[in-house]
Design a protein around this nucleic acid. Structure first.
Lengths: 119, 119
DNA sequence: TCTTCAGGCAAGTCATTACTTGCATATTGG
DNA sequence: CCAATATGCAAGTAATGACTTGCCTGAAGA
């Protein structure tokens, strides 16, 4: 049960606030050009381009050329993979997890600790 | 509609394959000690500790001390935030997005392009 | 046609991150 | 009480990532 190769690309694409912002902007109004997107980010055009390349590599954004301008469209499909692989899977185990906690704690004696600080 | 501050910490925590692996291991069997977790990762104990600290900061893993050993438990709650803030939100707009694509393309004339290569 | 506009490519810088090694501390079991 | 075990803390390194600047190319419109 090893990880699909594009999973890493996907998560890394979502890991940057500027890229999430770009997705938000596209979500509000899909099909924008590069220059339009630049107006929402406080960085150089090339910076935005690089972020968009990452999103495109993760298949979260699709590109269509219209003449000299580049239109960007959201593709939410990969997000579905995250849902299935992560959210659903872990949500199902929520009750189980808390149950396991109790079991383990009751097995060992000590619970609270003296000298150890960190949580 | 700006991003909650812990959102970034959460996404960054999920962005590393070793950390996702740790979550998988905990999902398979919750409540493991640090040493047990180390057996599944090909790196030094301190490396694993640092990854676990990131997961703990993101509130994805909870720690309980039992004597000298540190038990780790999954907390799937933050994943739910991702679902609501990201998956559900963008999934709802899937049809809308593709519709917008058609509209934009029909508005402009050119669709296919000559000299431009990329995508 | 020729200037303006939209965007690409390359290389360099700076910060962050992943990981290591070495040593210190607390707990447990004999 | 003491050796072995479980983990923490600090500092260093090497790689990755985010962003910039400068220059180049192709399409549009007066």
């Amino acid at each position: 049960m090893t990880e699909r190769p594009d999973t890493d690309v996907l998560f890394k694409a979502l890991a940057d606030p500027s890229r999430r912002k770009l997705m938000d902007v596209l979500h509000a109004n899909d099909g924008r050009t590069l220059n339009e997107l630049c107006e929402h980010l406080d960085m150089s055009r090339q910076g935005v381009t690089q972020h968009l390349n990452v999103l495109e590599a993760a298949n979260l954004v699709a590109i269509v050329w219209r003449g000299r301008e580049k239109l960007h469209f959201l593709n939410p499909v990969p997000l579905q993979e995250i849902y299935e692989r992560w959210i659903a899977k872990f949500e199902r185990s929520r009750v189980k997890a808390l149950h396991g906690l109790k079991q383990r704690l009751e097995a060992g004696e000590t619970i609270d600790t003296p000298k150890r600080r960190k949580s």
